[in-house]
């Protein structure tokens, strides 16, 4: 049986661990809040960009398809942008998104290559010998749009140069503190919202009202908006993933803190028993010794 000294050390180290995990939990809690706010702040831009795209799609004579909008008949290569975290200790967060991505494309014959955001995802994919064509790790704690724009640029370049015929983004969508869903979404070719068939009937003026003058031209404007919008989608995915990461870490750390506390109380119980046993033994020794002395002197 362990000595009381060893037990004490063990209890102390578990208590220290609990303190660390608890601190991490609090830090994550505040980071979740910030990440959610950042995520919400992109909404106005996204909504308006979406509206402009819909307006464009509704225009008469938008037959000239932008290359980023065109579905390709044959999909020879798939590119997946996988968003994970740089750091671990986030429960099953990284494992879940990597597994989901691998499963999603498991039954495909087409070769799949990856661009990873975050070290953990990159390492896991490399360990499984997947082809990683680009990686972005070490994004700041509050990534800005400008930081994530190169990722979008890379995706657009890969697509336009026919190195990839479809581009997906795999990330963890934040739903609430306890729930984060891995999501895989196709972002290129970009599908513009179909103008509803009956809009012309419902609002006879809608069409005439929205005949735009273009400056410089429709194609150039699409050329400007669509890569931006692709980058924006990736940006949003990153922000959502970030919120998920912190939420997952928070929950993992809370669990760790709780188990540490349970462990401490178990250990404490054992420790008390050992201590009690030690005291009893000593008492027996002393009383035994006293007895012996008394008999000897008698």
């Amino acid at each position: 049986m362990a000595s009381t000294r060893e037990m004490r050390l063990r209890i102390r180290s578990v208590k220290n661990l609990a303190q660390v995990t608890r601190a991490l939990e609090t830090v994550s809690a505040s980071k979740v809040r910030r990440a959610i706010q950042a995520n919400d702040r992109t909404r106005p831009y996204a909504e308006r960009a979406w509206r402009i795209l819909t307006d464009l799609a509704r225009q008469p004579g938008h037959q000239s398809m932008h290359p980023l909008l065109a579905e390709r008949d044959e999909v020879k290569n798939i590119l997946v942008i996988l968003i994970s975290s740089d750091r671990g200790l986030a429960g099953a967060y990284n494992v879940n998104i990597v597994r989901e991505a691998l499963l999603h494309f498991a039954d495909q014959q087409t070769p799949v290559s990856y661009i990873t955001v975050g070290k953990r995802g990159r390492d896991m994919l490399l360990r499984r010998r997947r082809s990683v064509v680009g990686e972005f790790s070490g994004l700041s704690a509050n990534p800005t749009y400008l930081e994530s724009a190169p990722i979008g640029q890379l995706a657009v370049d890969e697509f336009l140069s026919h190195r990839a015929d479809q581009v997906y983004v795999a990330y963890t969508e934040y739903q609430n503190m306890l729930r984060q869903e891995p999501v895989i979404r196709k972002i290129l070719p970009f599908s513009v919202p179909e103008p509803e068939k009956n809009t012309a009937l419902a609002e006879p003026q809608a069409k005439s009202k929205f005949v735009f003058t273009y400056e410089p031209g429709q194609e150039e404007i699409l050329h400007e908006i669509i890569p931006d919008f692709t980058a924006l989608q990736i940006y949003k995915a990153i922000l959502s993933a970030l919120a998920s990461e912190h939420a997952a870490r928070m929950v993992a750390m809370r669990n760790a803190t709780n188990s540490a506390k349970d462990l401490v109380s178990l250990l404490q119980l054992d420790y008390n028993k050992i201590r009690q046993a030690g005291i009893t033994n000593e008492m027996l020794d002393i009383s035994g010794g006293a007895e012996a002395l008394a008999q000897a002197s008698a």
Partner: peptide, 16 residues
């Protein structure tokens, strides 16, 4: 293609 001023009731326009 140049600086432009937009007043109320401007005709619909999309520009970079």
């Amino acid at each position: 293609e140049g600086v432009m001023g937009i007043l109320p009731n401007h005709s619909p326009l999309l520009s970079t």
